[in-house]
Design a protein around this nucleic acid. Sequence first.
DNA 1: CCAAAAGTGTTCCGTCTACACCCATGG
DNA 2: CCATGGGTGTAGACGGAACACTTTTGG
Lengths: 221, 221
Amino acid sequence: MTSYYSEYKKAFVSVDCIVFGFEERKLKVLIGKRKLDPGRDEWSLYGGFVGENESLDDAASRVLLNLTGIKKPYMKQVGAFGEINRDPGERVISVAYCSLINVKDYDSNLLKQYGVEWVNIDELPQLYSDHNKMVKHAITMLRQRIDDEPLCFNLLPELFTLTQLQRVYEAILGKEIDKRNFRKRVKAIEIIEQTALIDKQSSKRGAALYRLNKKAFANEN
Amino acid sequence: MTSYYSEYKKAFVSVDCIVFGFEERKLKVLIGKRKLDPGRDEWSLYGGFVGENESLDDAASRVLLNLTGIKKPYMKQVGAFGEINRDPGERVISVAYCSLINVKDYDSNLLKQYGVEWVNIDELPQLYSDHNKMVKHAITMLRQRIDDEPLCFNLLPELFTLTQLQRVYEAILGKEIDKRNFRKRVKAIEIIEQTALIDKQSSKRGAALYRLNKKAFANEN
DNA sequence: CCAAAAGTGTTCCGTCTACACCCATGG
DNA sequence: CCATGGGTGTAGACGGAACACTTTTGG
């Protein structure tokens, strides 16, 4: 094996995943207690090292598939974190990825299996290493993107009511939105379509169920 | 030395810098011919490996200081690039950084010393590895940020005319802007202040020179 | 005297915001 | 019958876009 760069030091490279979910009007993140040293028992994001034969994106996909059982979740790179002593063990460069999933699709057995839980973003404990910083970046990114890109659907089931969709926006933006203005806007975007179905869970009257219009969505992206 | 993660493979980690400049109404990037194998003589961004005792940001700062002679240029991380075979030599994870500098400040001796040159962003040749992708990301980032953050000043001398500032916006956005609307906007932001000085280079009549109001700027950031 | 760039306001239109009431129904 | 959430329209404010002419002066 040739070694073009042998005069330089290598480093461990990992990915850490900020998995967002939505429940009870709140934006949540999956975190768990670390099972390894260093940092055993500290709260932490879920991550993994990047293998020899996988790209960064592949590594993140693998980690997310393990953790959530979802094949192709919505996923974006947040950035690379590389302070010298960010990991108390050794020099590790970590690339953070953020992902949005629908909590209802999430097999809650996995919660136990991986020892992770959903925690409200405004009630996060102190996390291992620089993971709080990663979450903060990810939330900033979400807020910036929400206007440009229809990403809220990833946090909802296939069928959803307009009120649910509004709650997601409110949770991400951290403020209340006017109902009529909200509905006007989302209907103008024409990326969702009403179904004939009615949801009777949330109210006595029942609310129309909508779904993402995938053709319109594909045109947008 | 303890080795917590010894079962995993390490990788080389590098930084690559997209250095933007502005001249003759055009946004430009510093690129040069690679002097090393693999990829010797291909056009390439300027970069370097991340040392044992420096963070990613530090490595980028070091590389930029070398290349430009500027201590603390405006600098932002673009993202991490980690395809398996992105580097023909070995597995290298690279973190791209973008930077904005004022071409007039740039010591043009360094151009020769490092064998780099300013190339219009719309006339880029094919670059080494995934460097074209990095530049594309960086430009997208610039365009998104330009409205939120006053970053154009970094591409101009300390004193500049409103027309020059407008040219920078036009170069970044890739379209012409209405002069009156532009002036109205920038004056409303109140982050620049007029000086008593007049620039006679660009026109016979002369144009008022402005400068960044650093107090206002600090409040914004 | 004229070419070339600097400088300056107003109108229009579309978008965002604020705001309040009736509807349907399960319990 | 009433509490609960679903559903709807309008008016005013605001911000962005279009648009043309006068000024100055070096050559």
